[in-house]
Design a protein around this nucleic acid. Structure first.
Lengths: 178, 178
DNA sequence: ACCCGGCTATATCAAATTGATATATATCAT
DNA sequence: ATGATATATATCAATTTGATATAGCCGGGT
């Protein structure tokens, strides 16, 4: 799913600013997607030109003015069409797995340090996910709940997987060190 | 791990062409990383200028000439330093999970179709991984074996996770359809 | 014998994306 | 009063993707 479709999805239920969209991404979606301002603002501009969304400025006294974006009927149609398009492969880029592939090049101590760093990162992300869901559960969307439960199992499995990997790394003798 | 480090890692054990590197990525690493020609060739050029690698042309009669890249001592140092740098968060972009989040917007039939598409994609990737490992097992690198076993568990867990999700999707009544 | 698709091998390019940075104000804790 | 964090916009160099171009080889089907 591309940037524009994702943003339209968010606007289906609430009008939002670019800032709101970024915040939503860093919180709820960080485990399966991610967007930065450099892609959000251009996408909003493009979609406004294409009449998929409209913008109105909300003047604020003690903060910068907001540009609130609202989805149009045309935008809703585009979103539904995009949502029905076939699922494509996940794209994933794992710093740890890339390193693991070349672990014969470093010593055992460094290997264990890196593996434990990865475990900490994963455990922290799992906690983040739980915290966000606890705050957002009141929306009561059944599919977002299923999505959350998918995420929980995902991180739980991943954590076990790393533990298993660390065990294997500890078993390997310190023979080929430099 | 960035593009250049990854390429250096591959060159640690074998001299390779850009084409070889791309092939290795689409096969062995596709599940946790990925590179395209548009990033491989510029990276090779840059690293040659920086004396991290050297290039020599291998003339071929019945195929285009090869540009074979070999890592230098400086390149090896750079690689080891990069490898020891801290692990950073995985970046992942899941088409299916993004869609799932908005499943209230489409009917049950479409939802199940998309979920089953995802399951097929994951199962196919698992088979690919098994096939590649079967072909590559002879290198005998213990850490690449651990990496492979991580991948196997990863896909197995993911497949179960999707099955569980499909079950939940089937249980949800067709109430909110359009 | 002939054609088509796929493989080997290079390379480039528009478009998208990242990650950093800039600007400006407010609030809150130390 | 200083520094950190939050609100809110936006841009930019550098990187990356995904597609396309070029060009000859090989193997399978008809």
């Amino acid at each position: 799913m591309d940037t524009k479709t994702f943003i339209l999805g968010l606007l289906m239920t609430n009008s939002m600013t670019g800032y709101d969209i970024k915040k939503t991404f860093s919180m709820s979606f960080s485990f399966f997607s991610g967007l930065s301002y450099g892609s959000i603002y251009p996408a909003l501009k493009k979609m406004e030109t294409d009449k998929a969304i409209t913008m109105n400025i909300q003047v604020q006294e003690n903060a910068p003015n907001k540009k609130v974006y609202t989805i149009t009927d045309k935008g809703r149609e585009i979103f539904i069409e995009s949502l029905k398009k076939p699922v494509v492969e996940d794209k994933m880029r794992s710093s740890f797995l890339s390193k693991l592939f070349f672990f014969s090049e470093i010593g055992q101590v460094d290997r264990i340090v890196l593996a434990k760093q990865y475990q900490e990162i994963i455990d922290a992300k799992e906690e983040d996910l739980k915290a966000v869901n606890y705050a957002a559960r009141k929306t009561g969307d059944a599919f977002q709940q299923i999505n959350y439960e998918f995420g929980l199992r995902f991180f739980n499995d991943l954590s076990n997987n790393i533990q298993e990997t660390i065990k294997k790394l500890e078993e390997i003798d310190n023979g080929s060190d430099q």
